Simulated scan of single mutants.
Amino acid sequence: MGIRRTTQEWQMLIEQSESNSLSTLAFCKLKEVNPSTFYAKLKQLNKTEVYQGFVRAEVVEKTTKYQAQIATANMTLLVNDVELSIPQGTPVAYLAELIGALS
């Protein structure tokens, strides 16, 4: 009959095997552990860790709104020490009225 190990001892063995450059079989032979038992404990502990890793989540907002920003060339006007950045496609009549108001 083999050595009985606690869960903590198995976790330490598994961590040692993962940080070791030996193959799992070589590691088990070195530590005098039955490979079948090692794999069974590895599977059992990994399953436990996954279940413990769940967190409760809830939906805060059901819809997500995205606002796309389209890169456009801007025009910069300097009028009487005032600098204006105007998007491309601004109507000419609006620009003329704006420049007239700033003059």
Rank of each mutant, 00 (worst) to 15 (best):
G2T: 15
G2C: 08
G2W: 09
R4V: 15
W10Q: 03
W10Y: 02
Q11L: 05
Q11T: 07
Q11S: 14
M12S: 14
I14S: 02
E18Y: 01
E18I: 04
S19P: 05
N20R: 11
S21H: 04
L22A: 09
T24E: 13
A26H: 10
F27H: 02
C28S: 02
K31H: 03
K31T: 02
V33F: 00
V33C: 00
V33L: 03
P35D: 03
S36M: 04
Y39I: 04
K43N: 07
Q44G: 02
N46F: 00
E49N: 10
E49L: 06
E49W: 03
V50A: 15
Y51C: 14
Y51V: 12
Q52H: 06
G53D: 11
F54Q: 11
R56I: 11
A57L: 09
A57M: 15
E58A: 06
E58I: 07
V59P: 05
V60P: 00
E61S: 03
T63K: 00
T63N: 01
K65W: 00
K65T: 08
Q67S: 00
Q67P: 00
Q67E: 11
A68N: 14
A68E: 11
A68G: 11
T72Y: 01
T72K: 07
N74Y: 09
M75K: 10
M75C: 08
T76W: 07
L77D: 01
L77S: 02
L78N: 15
L78W: 05
L78M: 14
L78V: 07
V79R: 06
N80G: 13
D81F: 15
V82M: 12
V82K: 14
E83I: 06
E83N: 05
S85I: 12
P87N: 04
Q88F: 03
G89D: 08
T90R: 08
T90P: 03
P91H: 09
V92H: 13
L95E: 07
E97L: 08
L98N: 02
I99M: 08
G100D: 13
A101K: 09
A101E: 10
